[in-house]
Design a protein around this nucleic acid. Structure first.
Lengths: 213, 213
DNA sequence: GGAGAAATTATACACTTGCATAATTACGCG
DNA sequence: CGCGTAATTATGCAAGTGTATAATTTCTCC
């Protein structure tokens, strides 16, 4: 007798957990946190609903795990590209480019952000993850701007650096938001071009020329 | 016999509808669209749940009515302040100020935006309302920028105007978002100052001096 | 190959949800 | 005043929710 029709297959714990988390993110993006039901998640991950309880002690815990997974992925996607670049100006440009290109700019990413917002504001653990990630982004951007200004021979005081970082972060966030909300409203590369121009105008740096070592 | 303990009071239809819509917006902001239950809305509006069916044929219809009410209010709040101002530069500055001051910048407004996003992307009617409002904002901003540039003796071609409007809209949206997400992270007036500086830097216009006729 | 343990499924339960329908109540109008 | 109509409440229902627990199945190890 062949076991070809065995009723299920055992999987390594980490793989199953990740599959459940990915299914959760899909459904949260499509239907919001409350719309991502335990049964729906199980179906999307090709398991029965009972299994979720075996890996996560509650739906709440699964949601939190999914949120942290998503935030880590977004961070990696944003900072991976420019890590190796040479000049501060080139790294700043790489940061802008990475933040305004798929898969960071993406309807699904925006939907996830919006869906999680409510829970982020209420749940202390998720709030902590959110604020940490946000501070990480903005601090890193501020350091990049400071280095690029220094490099250009025009260092700026801390108070001004803070304002520049807030402004550049805002324009990037705004473009990210609009690119995700209206994917067809912008030509390929248009967001990057506008983002570069805007950051350049705000900081007074030249981000347009390609050579950057 | 005094009727002091009569079990309910009749209200004009419009007043009751608005009360239900306001209660809906409260709950949507707090718990998301799915978290805003018919029973919760009725309780918040001090009626029993059956009454909702009397004024709205379904929860869906109530949600759509609430969304349109909210969008209209946001539009009014943004454009009312600067309508009467004199020079184009002053009107542009009033637009920036209005967009970056409470009650436009507000955690509740951000929560509503995020909560509605999912439904906006799926429901055609809500999508239409959203895109119309968004286009109205950006077109109006583009017209303001065009007039201010003209006024300053530096008219710009259409393609550049489009990019300037997208960029300015993005920085305003981004600051609006961050002000709503982290209300305590910014000093009063700080967002307006950063917003003015950023729009000024992007467009090359001077928005800082106060006199504006 | 077969026992033991862990992964997975199957089933059940109490609760909430939106909606429908019947029963009351208030209030204008003769 | 009292009658009728519409606003409002009261009650019920079928479907969906998260979670708990029992029943199976797979796989490892000897």
């Amino acid at each position: 007798m062949t076991d070809e029709r065995r009723k299920f297959k055992r999987e390594p714990a980490e793989a199953r957990k990740e599959a459940l988390i990915l299914a959760t993110l899909e459904l949260v993006a499509e239907n919001g946190v409350r719309g991502a039901t335990v049964r729906g998640i199980a179906q999307r991950a090709d398991v029965t609903q009972g299994l979720i309880r075996h890996y996560f002690s509650s739906k709440e815990e699964l949601i939190i795990a999914a949120y942290e997974h998503h935030m880590n992925q977004m961070t990696d996607l944003t900072f991976a590209p420019g890590a190796a670049a040479g000049s501060a100006r080139a790294r700043l440009r790489a940061f802008v480019d990475g933040s305004l290109t798929p898969p960071v700019v993406d309807p699904r990413a925006l939907a996830l952000w919006a869906s999680f917002l409510n829970k982020v504001q209420n749940d202390p653990q998720m709030k902590e993850t959110h604020e940490r990630t946000y501070a990480y982004f903005r601090d890193r951007l501020e350091v990049l701007i400071a280095a690029a200004l220094e490099e250009a021979g025009r260092p700026a005081p801390a108070a001004r650096l803070r304002q520049l970082a807030i402004a550049c972060n805002a324009v990037i966030d705004g473009l990210w938001l609009e690119g995700g909300a209206l994917p067809d409203a912008f030509a390929p590369g248009e967001l990057v071009e506008i983002g570069r121009h805007s950051v350049a105008a705000i900081t007074g740096l030249d981000l347009m020329q390609e050579a950057g070592t």
